[in-house]
Nucleic acid binder design. Structure first.
Lengths: 172, 172
DNA sequence: AGTGTCACTTGCATAATGCAAGTTGTTTGT
DNA sequence: ACAAACAACTTGCATTATGCAAGTGACACT
């Protein structure tokens, strides 16, 4: 039968585990962001400089507002993002990646490279191959922007052929 | 209403597109394997040397057989794996990663590293950090095994504390 | 005071998932 | 030759997640 409901009372400031399918790090990662939306939100925060609910919503993928709200909740619960209502306009909630969140950059980058190499995407191959050659520089730049709260987009939206020839080349 | 069913007849040997949410490579990648199971199958093929339905099923994560069958179908349709009934025992179907599939190794590796760093997993931190230091070597070894059809597992199952101290260290 | 924004909720139809049991084709044991 | 065992799936059905349109409440702007 294999009931999977272990709650794990916080013992000595440690575990708050919820019972994983297995101890494999890949499996545990997938339990946190293994769906079609979570990583797109992370991407928006990471390379497009988005911060608000509305921006994510208008991101071009067509996420429904209830799903978006749900994913933001989960990502926050997972410690991948943090939320804060803005001082200047208290209607707005500003989301930000945590360090745990920005550490997803390599995952995103590899997915980007894989997708661009193996599928027909809106991203130009030359740009991607150049990114693949300069992984470390890209990751450093992503982290720099995060640390300095620099919201300048690193990559355009790749909606179709729409591309900013300057983007992603500044540190390449 | 927005029905999203564009079939795209093969025109001049090109598109067989199915209509993507956007042209972003990350988004397109997530459409192919953005769920809680697909990448686990890829992992099993890549680092555990699994080949058959039954092995995937007994992988320790508890995937249901109908879902497994569905994912195998999708992964094959996506060109990430190939299937072949064995000569010696025609009951068995042997699955294998395609080149497109083995190219997912960097994605998996980064997810493994991220998960092990930020969550409590069954993988020992030292091993993971050593892997993080030798990404290229690991990836080369993964690819070598794939090319030579060497089914020796590269990593153990990380079920809990269960670990083969030799695994993943041979090329480290 | 009135209208507009922003970040969500809610209700409801549809699709995906999980679980147990059943089916098909193949091999193995007697 | 025949029955039992296997491997790889299907099928039926309950539960859960997703997608869509519409609505709500707190705040802001004029």
């Amino acid at each position: 039968m294999q009931v999977t409901l272990v709650v794990c009372v916080p013992v000595r400031g440690r575990s708050k585990t919820k019972k994983h399918r297995s101890g494999c790090p890949v499996s545990i990662s997938l339990e946190m962001f293994g769906d079609r939306w979570s990583l797109l939100i992370v991407r928006d925060l990471m390379v497009r400089g988005y911060r608000t609910f509305k921006e994510f919503q208008q991101s071009g993928e067509g996420i429904a507002t209830n799903i978006l709200a749900d994913r933001l909740r989960r990502l926050e619960a997972a410690g991948i993002i943090s939320a804060e209502t803005e001082e200047k306009d208290r209607r707005r909630v500003s989301y930000r990646l945590t360090e745990k969140g920005i550490d997803l950059a390599p995952v995103l980058l590899e997915m980007l490279i894989w997708g661009a190499r193996h599928e027909q995407t809106g991203a130009p191959c030359e740009l991607i191959e150049e990114m693949a050659k300069n992984r470390e520089a890209i990751l450093a730049e992503v982290r720099r922007r995060w640390q300095e709260c620099d919201p300048t987009p690193l990559l355009p939206r790749f909606d179709q052929g729409d591309l900013d020839p300057d983007a992603g080349r500044r540190k390449g």
